[in-house]
Nucleic acid binder design. Structure first.
Lengths: 155, 155
DNA sequence: AAGTAAATTGACGTTGACGTAAACTTCGTG
DNA sequence: CACGAAGTTTACGTCAACGTCAATTTACTT
């Protein structure tokens, strides 16, 4: 029987690169600065990723393109998410070994980060919307202007 | 009589810098790459700006911060706006000397640029909104999580 | 087994968007 | 008018975010 993916469906660099439209250099750079480490390596050293890595990368790209966040800022967000992930797992396994205070603080700090993020995005959306409005009006004026000045090939 | 601003209220670098929260270097750099030229100079060579320059700069900053546009892209937008400005003036003064075809083409191209811009902004707003939604949900989950796990100092 | 496309590390190069230092000039106030 | 703060040009420095080249290895196909 030909088994093909014993350890949870990993994919290589080429697949990641193709799906996300980035270069392998970018991928390695992101690893360099601690943005995302491959889930594993082949015996030969080739990087292996999984679906959750793809999701994280998509998130990185969106934060970058849509919010203009620096990779440093994005790393902060990612780290907080990782922290929360660990925290949740911690709680699920009732591994209440760690200091309760510490855990509460970690959770609080994650919540603050999320609140900040949402606030930032709200303000950007607000700003963008008002800009869009302004440009839309200019566009409409220009179109009216055109149809006034050039009453040409129109039915 | 002490006249003070014979030629339409110009202001210096310091005032611009203070109002916009940027450095003078940035201002000079923007001039270097053709983003905004001062409206005049003092006899001694000091740069002078006016209110419309401030408005343009504010626009530049917003495009940069909110859309993550490069200065190059912003310059394209600015150039198109300048073009339209000239075009409008041209029409107002009925200086219909230029080729009608040319003017129509210029106007068309400006309209296309505006349409592109509005579309770009729509897509960004869309993307941002959906991200905001996702983060908002995570935030709410985390808050619920916290109040479940730590039923402490609450009335 | 052998060949070839693709991946790896290491290193230096590049581009955009300014920062910064130096040498000098101009402006506004006492 | 003197003088210190702020402005000017010239030029080199910097930092992020990759690009690119070279030498070597690995992975897959035939």
């Amino acid at each position: 029987m030909d088994l093909d993916g014993q350890i949870g469906d990993t994919i290589g660099v080429d697949a990641v690169v193709r799906e996300l439209g980035i270069t392998s250099r970018t991928l390695r750079y992101y690893e360099e600065i601690g943005l995302l480490t491959p889930v594993a390596r082949t015996p030969g050293g080739h990087r292996l990723y999984d679906q959750s890595a793809i999701e994280r990368l998509k998130n990185v790209i969106r934060l970058k393109e849509n919010l203009g966040f620096s990779l440093q800022e994005i790393r902060n967000v990612m780290e907080a998410e990782q922290e929360l992930e660990a925290l949740r797992k911690n709680f699920r396994e009732s591994k209440a070994a760690g200091d309760e205070e510490d855990k509460r603080h970690a959770l609080d700090s994650y919540i603050r980060i999320l609140e900040d993020l949402v606030a930032t995005m709200d303000s950007k959306i607000q700003s963008l919307t008002s800009m869009r409005q302004a440009y839309q009006e200019r566009l409409e004026r220009s179109i009216r202007f055109r149809s006034e000045k050039f009453k040409t090939e129109e039915s």
